[in-house]
Design a protein around this nucleic acid. Structure first.
Lengths: 185, 185
DNA sequence: TAAGATTGAACTATCAATCTTA
DNA sequence: TAAGATTGATAGTTCAATCTTA
């Protein structure tokens, strides 16, 4: 919503009291550019990844997270948390990746309710193939546009926002479930 | 993808040549926090808006953009561009808003192919009602977590990213693009 | 012939309910 | 009784095709 002096629509009940109700012009502009730039950025990254390797950014991110995990395997709930998607959303996403042979499901030994998502050989290959494209895109649109100081500052700011949102993937109470899995590949 | 020294998976074909193929650890971490923080932030904003006023963040943003336009009206294509959604996506979104009575469709006089989206009285009311909630959320999770310098820096960085993405319909003039003619595209 | 907007088909994501195991 | 994961129903989005007007 517009700030104090830009427009004269009926959205100004306050003029600067102790608890401001509207965003200032500077804040409004910052927020606007944040939303717009991020949407456009993600759209571009996805388009370039799909054009070059026929894989969506969403699916690619699954491969990335798995590749960084111990044994290239992760519990569904943990993976969903890292990807910021719902449990059911991850189930559907994994269905597609399993169908394409990039990921395999594996029973969790330590907790038989659980399921492990495991990166397959084909998944590794797809990741290795797509990674340079993705890295180049991110670098081109983000890191090349920022100097070192800006990058550090951006990261710091986003970390503050993340903290304000509350703990995400904080050290949870159940850390003993990271089962041992004889990498079935 | 992990950087150079974090992990020992088979994703390291280079060790630092002239054209780096992977992201550095710092870059990787910055990118990771960017994706995660933004997803969580938007999810929270949407949840709080829906809980308090039964309106989605997406629909709310339509109202905001219309409210800032001349006559609270915008051509479909222009609105879609500002919202970073496809033309068909906006058509469907407007269907819902029209059904709810928050927006009205109006024939465009100057170009009979066109359609105008116009904020209705109920739309204004809904916006006025929801705006304080949204503003408070954004302030709480973003602006309260950042000092003035960080806010300025963040905006600047995002503007650089936006510029690197290339002009969409995003002129660097922030205050003058209100109600201008559809500068032909 | 091209542009603006909409529609149909396909895809993806979520919530609520369900089933299995702790 | 609760937690992990999946499924059914549903909502929202996009691409390709279509219709109207420039």
């Amino acid at each position: 919503v517009a700030g104090n002096a830009q427009k004269a629509h009926p959205l100004e009940p306050l003029e600067g009291g102790p608890a401001r109700v509207w965003l200032s012009d500077v804040e409004q502009e910052a927020w606007r550019i944040m939303v717009s730039a991020y949407a456009r950025l993600v759209g571009r990254l996805d388009a370039e990844l799909q054009a070059a390797h026929a894989i969506s950014l969403r699916d690619y991110e699954v491969l990335v997270h798995l590749s960084e995990a111990d044994g290239a395997a992760l519990r569904m709930a943990e993976l969903a948390d890292r990807l910021v998607v719902s449990p059911s959303g991850l189930t559907r996403r994994l269905d597609g990746l399993v169908r394409d042979g990039l990921v395999k499901r594996q029973a969790c030994l330590s907790d038989r309710r659980g399921t492990l998502a495991v990166l397959s050989a084909a998944g590794w290959a797809a990741l290795e193939e797509a990674a340079p494209t993705h890295a180049a895109s991110v670098r081109r649109y983000v890191f090349d546009a920022l100097d070192r100081q800006e990058l550090w500052q951006l990261t710091s700011s986003l970390r503050s926002v993340s903290a304000a949102l509350g703990g995400t993937t904080q050290p949870e109470v159940h850390a003993s479930e990271r089962g041992h899995e004889p990498s079935g590949e």
